[in-house]
Amino acid sequence: SKDAAQYVYDEAQKGVTQVTVNGVTFKFDNWQKLLKYAQKLLN
């Protein structure tokens, strides 16, 4: 959902490398990768 994507995006902006959405945890090597993933979700 857009809300989940926005949440992931906001978390990535904080510099975190993992985020949990609806009980599913996504882990990334660095926050830039998390940010890229979030941007994909938002598009």
Rank of each mutant, 00 (worst) to 15 (best):
A5P: 15
Q13M: 09
V21K: 13
A12G: 06
A4H: 07
K14Y: 04
T17Y: 09
K14T: 12
K36W: 05
Q18G: 07
V19C: 15
G15Y: 13
G15S: 08
G23C: 08
L41F: 03
V8N: 11
K36R: 07
L34Q: 00
D29M: 07
A12V: 09
G23T: 13
Q18K: 07
A12T: 08
V21D: 13
K40W: 08
Q6Y: 04
Q32Y: 08
L42P: 00
K2L: 11
Y37T: 06
Y37Q: 07
L42V: 01
T25R: 05
V8P: 14
G23V: 15
V8K: 09
Y7H: 15
K33G: 02
K36M: 02
G15I: 12
L42R: 01
G23E: 12
T17V: 10
T17I: 12
V24E: 02
T20V: 13
K2F: 09
N30I: 15
L42M: 01
A38M: 12
E11R: 01
Q18S: 03
K36I: 06
L35S: 00
W31T: 00
A4M: 03
S1C: 15
G23W: 13
Q6N: 02
K14L: 10
K36A: 12
F28R: 02
K33P: 02
D29W: 14
V19H: 08
Q32I: 06
D29P: 14
A12M: 11
Q18Y: 06
D3I: 14
S1K: 12
N43S: 03
L41D: 00
Q18I: 11
A38E: 00
Q13Y: 05
G15T: 14
Q6M: 02
N30D: 11
W31L: 07
K27M: 15
Q32R: 04
L42H: 01
E11W: 14
N30W: 15
Y37V: 03
Y9G: 14
K33A: 05
W31P: 01
L41P: 00
T20G: 05
K33M: 08
Q13E: 10
V24S: 04
V21S: 06
N30L: 07
F26T: 10
Q39S: 02
Y9I: 10
L35K: 00
V21Q: 05
A5F: 09
Y9R: 03
V16F: 07
L41M: 02
V24C: 15
V16H: 05
Q39R: 04
W31H: 01
D10R: 00
G23N: 03
D3C: 14
T17L: 09
L42Y: 01
F26A: 09
D10L: 11
S1P: 14
Q13T: 09
K27R: 12
E11M: 07
A38Q: 00
A12K: 04
V8R: 02
Q13R: 07
S1W: 14
Y7V: 15
D29L: 14
F26R: 08
G15K: 10
Y7N: 14
D3Q: 08
W31V: 02
F26N: 09
N22F: 15
